[in-house]
Amino acid sequence: MLSSQSPSALAISGLKKTYREGFIALKGIDLNVEAGDFFALLGPNGAGKSTTIGVICSLVAKTAGSVSVFGHDIDHDFAAAKRCIGVVPQEFNFNQFEKVLNIVVTQGGYYGLPRKEALVRAEKYLRLLDLWDKRNVVSRTLSGGMKRRLMIARALVHEPKLLILDEPTAGVDIELRRSMWDFLQQVNASGTTIILTTHYLEEAESLCRNIAIIDEGDIIANSSMKDLLGKLSQEVLVLDIVESLPPDFTLKGFDCNWVDAHCIEVSIDREQHVNSLFAALEAQQLQVKSLRNKANRLEEMFVSLLKNPSKQSDIDYPHHESAEASA
């Protein structure tokens, strides 16, 4: 159990970043991630997620503000701060001509791990991520999913206390994504704090306990996942009905939208219960064949919070995933 006195895994205060060309990427954000948390940092493209991660890892120079990792300020105690961080970036950034095992062992070496120890750890993480059989393969020949897992193994080789994953499952098929979720949950359960950025809102909702949403360089929401989703005022359910329904079909007490003769969308307010919906349907002697949410709950909240909702097109929704998977 972590002591209440232990420093935050990440404490960001008044962080600003203005790029040379004048673009303001961060407008003075504050963020706190507790040790042991599984934290989601969401936002549309260009919102400032990668800039924030870049500053934490010293790849981007901040304009103002302070960042500390487990109590180590990245300006004054940079070695200790960096030692705590493992990063899985958005883009593949390993040597494409190097063998898988060498990439992980070399990264261990950069952190001062003697070669023997680095080899042991590389084997451990490559096995856990199902890459051990590929250890002598040149990295550029790996599939996209394998490359993502290689970057996770590389980020873990020095066993950081804080693991930052910038869209780790982008372009990964659903089966593999789920196995990566299991792996990340194990890593988190072992005590590693995880910060995740993702375009898959279902992923954030499944994995993360706390969440911050960043938009146009500002943090627009920062709370527990439960609290954030609790603020949803309305959900839209899609119902497949056995009986045939006329286009002017209505359901007393509910906002109802006819989709086709066997499908309707029903909006349910926070105060309403699904039981009352079923009761209303039963009153009309209608049988429900299946029921599902029209959109991911987090997705609905996310879209409602954005200053410019048109940016939602940057986000991948579950129904898009299904389409990709069946293609």
């Binding site: 010293s58 790849l59 883009e91 040597n95 990264q107 952190y111």
Partner: peptide, 10 residues
Amino acid sequence: RSIEELLITP
């Protein structure tokens, strides 16, 4: 961008 492997280390 593999230089980032090195730049993020202490």
